[in-house]
Design a protein around this nucleic acid. Structure first.
Length: 554
RNA sequence: GGCCCCGUAGCUCAGGGGAUAGAGCGUCGGUUUCCUAAACCGUGCGUCGCAGGUUCGAAUCCUGCCGGGGCCA
């Protein structure tokens, strides 16, 4: 019996029970039947609180409703026992075989186990990082590089059609300043005061001149443009390469320039005019964002006729909607929290429902330590400042896992010593180890010539307490994925995997899987191999949602 | 001045209204003739910042205050 089947059973029993209480006219169909796994085993495998929730409406004591529900529910196949406890909880214990069926389902579903349809038919745009192409990606970007990607994966697992999108701010004075900095560097001249000073600028200059020495003899104005464009191409390429290495793959690289080139900006502006939130004042064109909670109105077109960055952002939103995205998620750093109201107001000004079409998530900053010492994010040599350097030091798996493991809206301290340590206090290794351990068992089974998939799986044989615990945990997985998607909180998957790995290790510790010595292959061996295979599948599926590898050996 | 985040065990942190608030680390001790000991088991550990409110029930939701971090102006 699956959780969904149990829910249906409860719903059915509830109707009968209410009839029996003379409350058949009470419509309980809108009551969400919450099924939870009790913390204590004494309270059964599953529990529901519907009796308490309905008490007021039915005008009966919760325990009375619970009793009626329990006696009805007890008749269902697959349910071993139903108890009423506490203020009106209905505690349900399943038959052993009923638990174990999940193992078969998981193995048969394979990578699809956990995939749901809650968001089927919804097109979601997840925009994150969106760095200027004027330097390497740094720590401020890494959290979203991991979490944003995981959010996209989790949403996809919930059935949504997802695009990961990176908005390239490749237009405006910052780009010119970037070009000027590289050019100055190429000539051995001092970089402009508010230009870009990192060592990478020198490297870029050197590489550009090496590839095209003639660039230095161009007229100054042309040369500036050439340097700017060459540096832009290289820097963007470098960012893309690093993200690729980090296993964060964007579906769309949206360029601000192209937005302007395609007249999307004019189009977006037109759309806002139609909605009646655009006005002119002091020679500038404004968007009345204060109508929707912003603290001041914003300029779209300056008095000199230039579009503002805000105009681009606005047009970009309208463009995303035009491309059919129902939900547009923006992942921003804590330093951009002032943008939240502005962006939401843009959606409202475009005639959209703020609560439906736009979501702005704020990620708190990441602090890095090495043991007790904080790693200052200065640009001095030896301190980690870029995503690339972080990956070099700790590896992609550890970096991604650690960044995703915590809710993004809480501050995060990343200890380089801990996450490279190969012990229990490093959760990524703990979870990966469970996967490798299972893989090893299954390898050994193959070497012993045991073809468990072809053998009869007897779910009734998995009755050990540790087996039941593990099966119960495996059954939770789809619900965890669904809630991670709904809440945009992939850390829930990571936390779940840690608990699941614990359940596996505990099972492994006391339940021997393979035949020992000259022992014949028994049905229990086969059943346990199915259980192992199911556990491995869930670990692999979960790790995949985080973009972390599931090693066969460690 | 406005806004955002945080406050839970000695430390780092989970805990989207439910029963006795959890995990890792750290302490001390134990477990391997055979499937990966990167594991498992035992052992302590709490005014869930404070005060009100909503609820049958609040660490969780609402309001105010205190404390810490940060952003904008």
């Amino acid at each position: 019996m699956t959780i969904d089947e149990l829910r249906a059973a409860i719903a059915g029993s509830l109707n009968v029970a209410l009839d029996g209480l003379g409350s058949g006219d009470v419509d309980a169909s809108d009551v969400e039947i919450v099924i939870e796994r009790p913390k204590s085993r004494e309270h059964g495998d599953y529990a529901t609180n519907v009796a308490m929730v309905l008490a007021k409406r039915v005008q009966r004591p919760p325990r009375e409703i619970a009793e009626a529900l329990a006696s009805e529910l007890g008749g269902y196949a697959g349910i071993a026992q139903v108890d009423v406890a506490g203020p009106g909880f209905v505690n349900i214990t399943l038959e052993a075989a009923s638990h174990a069926e999940v193992a078969r389902r998981i193995v048969e579903a394979g990578p699809d186990y956990g995939v749901g349809d809650a968001l089927a038919g919804t097109k979601v745009n997840v925009e994150f990082i969106s760095a200027n192409p004027t330097g390497p990606l740094h720590l401020g970007h890494t959290r979203w590089a991991a979490v944003g990607d995981a959010i996209a994966r989790v949403l996809r697992a919930a059935g949504a059609e997802v695009a990961r999108e990176f908005y390239i701010n490749d237009r405006g004075v910052q780009m010119d300043m970037f070009g000027a900095s590289v050019m100055a560097s190429a000539h051995g001249e001092p970089v402009p005061e508010d230009g870009y000073h990192g060592g990478y600028v020198v490297d870029l200059a050197g590489a550009i001149v090496a590839e095209d020495p003639d660039i230095l003899s161009l007229p100054r104005d042309d040369q500036l443009v050439s340097f700017r464009e060459a540096a832009y191409a290289r820097q963007l390429g470098q960012q893309q390469q690093v993200l690729d290495l980090f296993r964060t793959h964007f579906d769309v690289w949206a360029s601000e320039r192209e937005l302007h080139g395609s007249a999307a900006v004019e189009g977006g502006l037109e759309r806002l005019r139609e909605q009646g939130h655009v006005f002119e004042e002091d020679g500038a064109v404004w968007l009345r964002t204060t109508d929707f909670g912003d603290d001041k109105d914003r300029v779209l077109v300056k008095a000199d006729g230039e579009y503002t960055y805000f105009a681009s952002d606005t047009a970009y939103y309208v463009d995303k909607r035009a491309r059919g995205f129902d939900v547009n998620i923006y992942l921003l750093g804590a330093d951009h929290h002032g943008y939240v109201n502005r962006l939401r107001a843009v959606a409202a000004c475009a005639g959209d429902d703020i609560d439906a079409h736009i979501e702005v998530l704020i990620g708190q900053l990441v602090k890095i330590t090495r043991g007790e010492l904080e790693v200052k994010l200065s640009k001095r040599a030896g301190n980690i400042v870029t995503l690339e350097e972080l990956v070099e030091e700790v590896g992609v798996d550890a970096a991604r896992y650690t960044l995703i493991r915590y809710p993004a809206d809480s501050p995060l301290t990343l200890d380089l010593e801990t996450i490279t340590r190969q012990t229990n206090d490093n959760p990524v290794f703990y979870v990966q180890y469970a996967h490798a351990r299972i893989s090893s068992v299954l390898r050994n089974a193959r070497e012993l010539g045991i073809d468990w998939r072809e053998a009869e799986f007897d779910p009734g044989s998995l009755t050990h307490e540790r087996e039941i615990e593990l099966l119960g945990r495996l059954a939770e997985y789809p619900r965890i994925v669904a809630s991670a998607a709904e809440l945009r909180e992939p850390h829930r998957v990571a936390r779940y995997l840690e608990e699941m790995a614990t359940d596996y290790h505990r099972f492994y510790d006391v339940c021997w899987v393979l035949p020992r010595g000259e022992e014949d292959v028994q049905p229990l061996h086969i059943s346990r191999l199915w259980l192992c295979a199911a556990a491995r599948q869930v670990l692999a599926n979960g790790l995949d949602l985080l973009g972390v590898s599931a090693p066969e050996r460690m």
